[in-house]
C-alpha cells in the first residue's frame, strides 16, 4: 500500500514534470511563431525552443569572478523545482491534482513567488551591475502585482466560503464548482469578469513578458537578471519560463474555466480522458494567446515606475471593484431570500 503510494507520487511527479517541460517549450514555440506572423516575419520553427534548450545544455557554464558560485549555480534548480511543484497542485486536464492540501491556493501563491525570487537572488549573486538593476526591478514588479493577485484569490475563496463550502482554498473544490455557476446575478458576473481581466494582466508580469519585462529589458540592461547566466543555468531559467507559462495559464483555466467536454458529450473513460486533455491544452493555448502573445506584440515596454503604477492604482482598484461586486451579488441575493 505504502509502496504503491510512493510509486504513484514518484511516477506522477515525473510525468507532471515531463508534461510541464514539454508543453512549456511547445507553447513557447507556438507563441514565437504566432508573434512572428503578427509582426510580418516568418519566425523560427515551432521546435526551436527544444533546440535552444538542447544547445544550451551542451554549452559551457561560465561563472563570473564576482559571483557567489554556489548560490549562482543552485538558484536556477530551486526555481525550476518550485515551478514544477506548482503543477502538482493543479488539476491538469481532467485529472485530479497529485497533491492536495486544505490551502492549495495559498500554497500556490507562495510557490509562485519562488521562481521570481530565484531570479532576484541569481541576479544579485552574479555581481553584475545590469543584473543588480534587473533584480531590483524584478522585486518592484513582484511587489506590484502581488496585491491585485491576492485580492483576486481572496475573492474567489471568500465566495466559495459564503456558499458554505469547507475546503474553499482547494483547487479540486474550485474546479468542481466553477465561479460562473456560483454567481446569482449580473453584478457577480461582471465582478468575476473584471477579476478575470486582472488575472490575465497579472500573467505577463508574472512571466516577465513585454510590456512588463523591464527586469530583463534587453535594450536597456542587456538581459538584466540573466545577463551573466550561460549554458546549463541559462537553460534552467529558460525551462522555468516555459513551465511557468503553463502554470499561469493552468491557474487561469482552473480558476475561471474548469469545464470539461467529456461530461457534456457523454463519452466513455478513455475517450473522455483524451478529449479532456486536448480541450484543456486548447484552453491553455487560448489563455497564452490572449495574455502573452497578443499583449506583447501590441504595446511597448513600460518603465518600472509605470509598471508599479499600473498594478497598484488601476488594477488594484479594478480588482477591489470586482471584489465589491461579487460581495453585493451575494448580499442582494440574501435580501431577496429574506423577503
Amino acid at each position: 500500500m505504502l509502496s504503491e503510494l510512493i510509486l504513484r507520487i514518484i511516477l506522477g511527479t515525473l510525468s507532471v514534470a515531463a508534461f510541464g517541460v514539454f508543453f512549456g517549450l511547445l507553447y513557447k514555440g507556438i507563441d514565437r511563431k504566432l508573434s512572428a506572423h503578427m509582426q510580418g516575419r516568418i519566425g523560427p520553427p515551432i521546435r526551436q525552443p527544444f533546440r535552444d534548450v538542447a544547445k544550451l545544455f551542451e554549452k559551457e557554464n561560465i561563472i563570473p569572478d564576482h559571483a557567489i558560485p554556489w548560490v549562482f549555480n543552485f538558484i536556477p534548480l530551486v526555481g525550476l523545482v518550485a515551478t514544477i511543484s506548482i503543477l502538482l497542485y493543479l488539476p491538469l486536464g481532467g485529472f485530479p491534482p497529485l497533491f492536495s492540501s486544505g490551502a492549495d491556493l495559498i500554497v500556490v501563491l507562495y510557490l509562485l513567488i519562488i521562481p521570481s525570487l530565484a531570479l532576484v537572488i541569481g541576479g544579485f549573486s552574479s555581481g553584475s551591475p545590469y543584473a543588480i538593476v534587473g533584480a531590483q526591478r524584478e522585486m518592484a514588479t513582484m511587489i506590484a502585482y502581488e496585491f491585485p493577485l491576492a485580492i483576486l484569490i481572496i475573492t474567489i475563496a471568500w465566495n466559495l466560503l459564503q456558499k458554505g463550502v469547507t475546503s474553499a482554498f482547494s483547487f479540486s473544490t474550485i474546479a468542481s464548482m466553477p465561479v460562473w455557476n456560483q454567481v446569482t446575478g449580473p453584478l457577480g458576473f461582471i465582478g468575476f469578469a473584471i477579476l478575470l481581466v486582472v488575472l490575465m494582466l497579472v500573467t505577463p508580469a508574472e512571466l516577465s513578458k513585454i510590456p512588463f519585462d523591464s527586469p530583463e529589458a534587453e535594450t536597456e540592461i542587456a538581459g538584466g537578471l540573466l545577463v551573466e547566466y550561460s549554458g546549463r543555468n541559462l537553460a534552467m531559467f529558460y525551462l522555468i519560463d516555459g513551465v511557468k507559462t503553463v502554470v499561469m495559464a493552468s491557474i487561469v483555466v482552473t480558476l475561471f474555466f474548469p469545464y470539461n467536454l467529456s461530461a457534456f458529450l457523454g463519452l466513455g473513460s478513455y475517450e473522455a480522458m483524451i478529449i479532456d486533455i486536448v480541450f484543456y491544452l486548447f484552453k491553455i493555448f487560448l489563455v497564452i494567446l490572449f495574455s502573452v502573445t497578443l499583449i506583447r506584440v501590441a504595446i511597448a515596454r513600460l518603465k518600472i515606475d509605470q509598471i508599479v503604477y499600473t498594478y497598484w492604482i488601476p488594477l488594484t482598484l479594478a480588482s477591489l471593484i470586482g471584489l465589491i461586486l461579487v460581495m453585493w451579488d451575494g448580499v442582494i441575493m440574501n435580501i431577496f431570500s429574506f423577503t
Binding site: Q39, G40, D213, T219, A300
Partner: peptide, 16 residues
C-alpha cells in the same frame, strides 16, 4: 526607436 522601447512590431512595420 520603437525597438529601443521594446515595440518590435512597429520596427517590422516601419522597415517594411
Amino acid at each position: 526607436a520603437a525597438h529601443e522601447i521594446g515595440f518590435d512590431s512597429v520596427l517590422f512595420l516601419t522597415w517594411e
